[in-house]
Amino acid sequence: MLDLHRLRIFRSVVASGSVHAAATNLGYTPSAVSQHVAALQRETGLALLERAGRGVRPTSAGLALAAEADELLARLGAAEDLVAGLRSGRAGTLSIAYFASAGVMWLPAVVSRLSSEFPGLRLDLRLNDEAPDHPDERADVHLVVARGPLTVGPGSVSHHLRDDPYVAVVPRGHPVADLAQVTLVELERERWIDNDSARGWCRRILLDACAAVGFRPVFHVEAHDYRAALAFVAAGVGITVLPALTAEQPPDGVVVVPVARPAPVRSIHAIVRESAAGTKAGQMAVELLRASSKS
């Protein structure tokens, strides 16, 4: 295997035109440069330099090796830049998995800032409501919804971002629109609009709260996401109950009313792989998510 250090010195001799000039440029003694070049010739079994007046010039084999050394050293420089970028968080990949409402409300600002701070970083964004059980299948930063405190296994850390209480969204002019809060029982006979086609934790938390007061809502319309459900409410089709985060930018024609007795609450967490938690980009992603969740 060729010695990379000797290749550097040989390339300097070719570029400088003499052993003495290369030694001056590199800060070595001429004897040390000559020894490295001689060792490289023994390694390759090739005559790489020949005398030319007071200096040296590369042989045809030396010219070919010098050209190859140029490409090799350029690739090495690029690799060194990549390593430095990975250490500082400026390069590499950061994957972020999220659920729909976080993607709409938080991710645009988070991604914009990360892209500005780390222009060489590739962001891999995934819509995924629930974190896989196996840590290796999770994103570097995985936003998840849970019923309460979250426990993660080895290899990951969990950050609680916020508790998100549920609210009722009703058409303007609805009998409960002017209330400070509304109980779930008061909404039992309404025309309910479903808002979670994934049938994930968010829906289960709501159904469990309804079951706690003795009913299960009858969904007259099944919308596939929160925005569609809000649009149906604005059109006067019925009411919907969903997490407050999803109703922070409601359409015209609707009123948002807090839900009470019981008050369903979902807990939002960021699960971060330890390998990402040690990078500047991963740390900033968590900081930005914390800030977004509190705004």
Score class of each variant (00 low, 15 high):
Ala32Pro: 02
Val254Lys: 01
Ala66Lys: 00
Ser293Trp: 04
Ala131Met: 13
Ile9Gly: 00
Pro264Trp: 02
Arg266Pro: 00
Asp81Asn: 05
Val221Ala: 05
Val145Tyr: 07
Val37Gln: 03
Gly120Trp: 01
Ala228Trp: 06
Ser16Thr: 09
Tyr226Glu: 13
Leu121Arg: 07
Thr279His: 08
Lys280Thr: 14
Cys210Leu: 02
Met1Ala: 13
Ala91Thr: 13
Ser60Ala: 15
Asp252Lys: 06
Val255Cys: 11
Glu117Cys: 04
Arg227Trp: 07
Arg266Thr: 15
Val233Lys: 10
Ala78Pro: 02
Pro258Arg: 04
Phe232Gln: 13
Asp70Asn: 13
Ala212Ser: 15
Thr29Met: 00
Asp133Lys: 12
Asp196Leu: 03
Ala69Pro: 02
Arg51His: 14
Asn195Trp: 13
Lys294Arg: 15
Pro243Met: 01
Val83Leu: 10
Phe232Met: 09
Gly89Val: 02
Arg216Trp: 00
Met284Ser: 05
Glu50Thr: 15
Cys202Leu: 14
Ser112Gln: 14
Arg162Asp: 00
Val255Lys: 11
Ile193Ala: 03
Ala276His: 09
Ser197Val: 10
Ala211Phe: 11
Ala74Trp: 12
Ala168Pro: 07
Leu150Trp: 04
Pro30Arg: 05
Ser267Arg: 08
Gln35Asn: 11
Ala231Tyr: 04
Leu127Met: 13
Ile239Pro: 01
Leu2Glu: 10
Pro135Gly: 03
Leu73Glu: 11
Arg216Tyr: 07
Val170Gln: 00
Leu82Phe: 06
Pro149Gly: 08
Val221Trp: 14
Val256Arg: 08
Val170Gly: 01
Thr59Gly: 12
Val221Lys: 06
Arg189Pro: 04
Gly282Ile: 02
Val237His: 09
Phe118Glu: 00
Thr59Gln: 06
Arg42Glu: 15
Val213Thr: 12
Leu76Ile: 14
Gly173Trp: 08
Ala66Gln: 05
Arg90Trp: 04
Ala67Asp: 14
Ala247Met: 02
Pro251Ala: 07
His5Trp: 06
Pro135Met: 02
Arg11Thr: 05
Met105Gln: 14
Glu190Gln: 14
Ala281Thr: 08
Asp136Asn: 08
Glu222Ser: 13
Val14Pro: 07
Ser292Gln: 15
Ala168Val: 03
Val218Tyr: 06
Asp225Glu: 14
Glu43His: 05
Gly173Ser: 10
Gln41Trp: 01
